[in-house]
Amino acid sequence: MRTLATLVLLSLPVTAHAQDRGPILAEITEAHILPRFANLSESADSLASTAQADCLPGSSDLRAAYGAAFDSWVSASHLRFGPTETGDRAFALAFWPDTKGFTPKTLSRMIADADASVGDAEAFSQVSIAGRGFFALERMLYDPDFADQGQAAYRCALIQAIAADIARNADAINADWQGYAALIMHPGDGSPYRSGDEAMQEHYRALTTGLEFTADTRLGRPLGTFDRPRPNRAEARRSERSLRHVELSLAALKDLALRLSADHPEIASRLSQAFDAAANRAHALDDPTFAGAATPQSRLRIEALQQSINDIRSIVSTELGPTLGISAGFNSLDGD
């Protein structure tokens, strides 16, 4: 390789001078991340054992276990890095949005073929991610279209296989996070993060993409346009969990945002107020599946909730980002 020619042309440094990120990184890892994956692992194991005992789609025990495990996933689902991303584990837990209907297609095909992978955990882990995870299980538990496809015994085995695969995945994520925790808390040699700033940026990205997903996808997809609202595209509407996911994600993202801004009390305070405003709007909505997207009056209230999340995003990108060495450049922010 030829000589590395580097010419420094910056008149101003783009990152703040080096700060000790250690305490915040430790707090985020130990108080925000690890408990979430421990909860996920525990509730997913419980889901798998409940399904083993009772695989009827209408079983209240099974549905309760499903809800509890899905709650813990949604509360951790913004943490899509490290062990969560390995082998597309996060997507295998929750493949949504499913814009091309891969989940029902995959499930119908498995049922029609009586696909033998349901009897072998290893083989099932190789099934398309669209046929696994919480959204596949939701179809099996709540979608009338799947209530009478194929044989009851196969449907039972499929429900148990999906639940067991969720548990396997959740356990693997949780186990790997025990080791990965030290890497993100202690950037530098031996860590995939070269500096404290880089590790902070990973958490920042989790916050911004989490907010984007909730505003633009969880709310944006059912809202559609005024002329063409799409309430049938609400996330997990069959189990009536759509609004609940927005509330759970806001609570989780608020916790992360306040920890990320711990060194900047003014920003933390503004973020806290903005999150509370959004949570209040969500709480007042009383529309679990965003069915109201289709009627002007109730639609306005969903749009107001979306706007209140966009207000949080604006504080995050213009105030919090720059404190973490995130360039707020015209092109670097554009993402195109």
């Binding site: 949005p97 505003a215 633009d216």
Partner: peptide, 11 residues
């Protein structure tokens, strides 16, 4: 409807 959100990263 979802702005610039990426909808299909795993696939």
């Amino acid at each position: 409807d979802s702005g610039r959100t990426k909808l299909n990263l795993p696939v």
